[in-house]
């Protein structure tokens, strides 16, 4: 599962590419958490523009990162969700979290 990490000015951007399900989420989680643990970015931006498929495991992935980042006072932002990803997030009631 290829991700591209980019860090500048306290903002870590993670460009996720491919399909997010329970299988691929495990590796994604590890990679994102490793970078977050060492950089402790003020803002973690998850860029979904390269995501072609996502099921509710993707919601678990986002929620888990949301909690990790919030625990040290950072914020999570979800960037460029394609329509099907946005729909899944709405279903999960994520609009209320202010991450979109």
């Amino acid at each position: 599962m290829p991700v591209i990490l980019e860090s500048s000015d306290g903002e870590l951007t993670v460009l996720i590419q491919g399909e997010i399900d329970h299988h691929t989420a495990a590796a994604l989680r590890e990679e994102i958490d490793r970078a977050v643990d060492s950089l402790k970015p003020e803002v973690l931006a998850l860029d979904f523009s390269g995501v072609g498929f996502m099921d509710s495991s993707g919601i678990g992935l986002i929620m888990g990162r949301f909690q990790n980042v919030r625990a040290y006072g950072g914020t999570l932002r979800v960037v460029n969700p394609p329509p099907m990803v946005a729909r899944m997030m709405r279903l999960a009631g994520m609009g209320r979290l202010g991450v979109l």
């Binding site: 989420a25 509710s56 919601i59 992935l61 929620m63 279903l91």
Partner: peptide, 13 residues
């Protein structure tokens, strides 16, 4: 913590 508990809700909708 990594499960959203939304699988059935997604299947239904």
């Amino acid at each position: 913590s990594e499960r959203a508990g939304l699988g059935f809700a997604v299947m239904e909708s």
